[in-house]
């Protein structure tokens, strides 16, 4: 009968699938959209070199944390470092893989990329909807001589739970107590006005399409989409443009070895060239490896990424981790142990 033939087909397919699955090294990771282009590039190069496939899917930082906790993926990725207590409770280890910058982007007629300057006060007041028009005197005072139109400001934020939002709001909350009070900081916040876009890509798309919009995206998205980024006045009072140099300047100030779980906060760093909104993006993996071979493969991949892969970072507008950070990270992998109590992977 028809039914039994179909059932036979299904079981054949599934058993074929299971058999096939036993052979190749296939790893799955999920999480932040912030570093997604970099991870995709690395995976492609790594596969060409070793044959191992690292399938990374960008579902948002919150999603990355959730899926690794549900053990449906081999590693999770989050821009927002997970709190030490939660790492402890879940038994997760955390280490950074790449650094990038968060950049405010605008869509204002007549304003070229990098032309508009904003300081802490104006940036936070715009995003808490206190300043509602582009020709507001506060903005004008920071931009003498620039012709600002009488357009309404439309805030564009992340509609999904986002590490990029966490980095951005953390910065604004640090430099603006009113912002902290009204909006707060975190992966999801209550924006007082504006529209939401899904993923970094969604925010970029919305800003490009709405006249008078302002949003925040990871630098690669701003550059690739040729968007008008904003120049910010950093902690030292200097106006900086977002680029690899200013992100690296911010990253160089951090104490990588001194911070537990590498949870460094790169926002609002001192230094004349430092970009104020910089962040590392983190990888989450279980300390107690239930599948030691899989975990070993994951660490082998990240060893490659942290050493050979960092060269490719600049081409995609990310910033490689400083050498001392890489050394400390590789050393920290000694705590990822298999059921036999031995570290699953030791870098050569």
């Amino acid at each position: 009968m028809k039914v039994s033939v179909n059932k036979l087909l299904v079981s054949l397919l599934m058993s074929a699938g299971l058999v096939a699955g036993a052979n190749a090294a296939q790893l799955t990771g999920a999480g932040a959209t912030f570093p997604a282009p970099m991870y995709a590039k690395w995976a492609e190069a790594y596969k060409a070199e070793t044959g191992t496939t690292i399938n990374y899917q960008a579902i948002g930082s919150g999603g990355g944390v959730k899926q690794i906790q549900a053990k449906t993926v081999d590693f999770g990725a989050s821009d927002d470092p997970v709190a030490a207590a939660e790492l402890e409770k879940s038994g997760l280890a955390q280490f950074p893989a790449i650094i990038g910058g968060v950049v405010p982007v605008v869509n204002i007629k007549g304003i070229a990329p990098g032309q508009l300057k904003l300081n802490n006060a104006t940036l936070s007041d715009i995003f808490r909807a206190k300043i509602t028009k582009w020709n507001d005197p506060a903005i004008a005072s920071v931009n003498p001589g620039v012709a600002l139109p009488d357009t309404a400001i439309t805030i564009v934020y992340r509609s999904d739970s986002s590490g990029t939002t966490a980095v951005f709001t953390d910065f604004l909350a640090q430099v603006s107590p009113p912002f902290k009070g009204v909006v707060g900081a975190g992966k999801t916040v209550n924006w007082p006005a504006g529209v939401g876009g899904k993923g970094n890509a969604g925010v970029a798309a919305n800003v490009t399409k709405i006249d008078g919009a302002v949003g925040y995206v990871e630098y690669a998205y701003a550059k690739q989409n040729k968007m008008s980024h904003v120049s910010l006045i950093n902690r030292d009072g200097k106006a900086v443009q977002p680029n690899e140099a200013s992100f690296a300047a911010a990253a160089s100030k951090a104490s990588w070895t001194g911070t537990p779980n590498f949870a460094v906060n790169l926002n609002n760093q001192s230094g004349a060239n430092s970009w104020p909104i910089t962040s590392a993006s983190f990888i989450l993996i279980y300390k107690k490896a239930e599948k030691p071979e899989q975990s070993a493969e994951v660490l082998k991949y990240f060893n490659w990424a942290l050493t050979k892969g960092q060269k490719m970072a600049v081409a995609l507008d990310y910033v490689p981790l400083p050498d001392n950070a890489v050394k400390a990270i590789i050393k920290s992998w000694g705590e990822i142990k298999g059921p036999d109590g031995k570290p699953v992977y030791t870098a050569k």
Binding site: I59, G62, G63, V65, D160, G196
Partner: peptide, 18 residues
């Protein structure tokens, strides 16, 4: 004004809801 529907709320927020 921008808003949300039931389906769009689910699509946006389920991935990371705790």
């Amino acid at each position: 004004a921008p808003g949300n529907s039931i389906a769009s709320t689910l699509a946006n927020e389920f991935a990371e809801a705790d």
